[in-house]
Design a protein around this nucleic acid. Structure first.
Lengths: 115, 115
DNA sequence: GTGTTATATAACGAGGCGTGCAAATAGGGG
DNA sequence: CCCCTATTTGCACGCCTCGTTATATAACAC
């Protein structure tokens, strides 16, 4: 799960969203981020590198330009993780509801302790 | 999306996973994390506070202890975000496939590259 | 009250991250 | 060749976060 580590950055998240629509040359990414976040082009370049090293994006050479594109596996990895957690939680929720429905309502206190 | 900012931390992700199973007192969370990451109780306490401020967890008072539990909305938020991105990407992929199917095949010239 | 458990806060240091600027590299094109 | 554009990299700096240890608060028990 390298992806989540790297997506903690708002700027990088924005880049990912931008690339989700389709591949873009570094310059255009930089421009968008410059407008929205007020950061310089080299800064964006660095973020792109971080994203690349984390396997979130990849780049292609097109003459002098670098075309960056999203690697969907990475995003999917994040989605899977979050969904797994959500699922755990839902299971728990269902269990509680069942329990309550059965009338065992007054127990839940000592349930989780017992170390 | 405060959740993603905060979930970039491995320790915090572990805490979330632990709490996904069910609520736990701070002490037990601290113990688990101490065993697995070798960090101290105060460190865990701080992570819990960060998670709380980000709306990922919440706590209730039970005598001297604090019971921490996951706020599923936060996790769901992350899942939704990631899925949205993934969906964008899938749309794009579908579009490309359609294009290729139409016979425009010979374009993908400089596809492969990396550092 | 004193003592004990459970947890949070304070104070501090170390390290990492993100930034801008300036310079370097890569790839055209005259 | 030399120059121009696109992008990356080197450097210095400030900030923010993490971790530890020591200490405080809260609630209970005696």
């Amino acid at each position: 799960m390298q992806a989540l580590d790297v997506l903690g950055e708002p700027v990088r998240r924005r880049i990912v969203e931008e690339l989700a629509v389709g591949p873009l040359p570094a310059g255009e990414v930089a421009e968008v981020l410059h407008v929205e976040f007020g950061i310089s082009q080299p800064a964006v370049s660095r973020h792109l590198r971080v994203l690349k090293q984390a396997g979130v994006v990849e780049s292609t050479v097109d003459a002098q330009r670098r075309l960056y594109s999203l690697k969907p596996e990475a995003v999917e990895e994040v989605a899977v993780w979050a969904q797994r957690i959500a699922q755990f939680w839902n299971q728990r929720l269902d269990a509680l509801e069942t329990e309550v429905a059965r009338g065992k309502s007054a127990r839940r206190t000592a349930e989780r302790n017992a170390s």
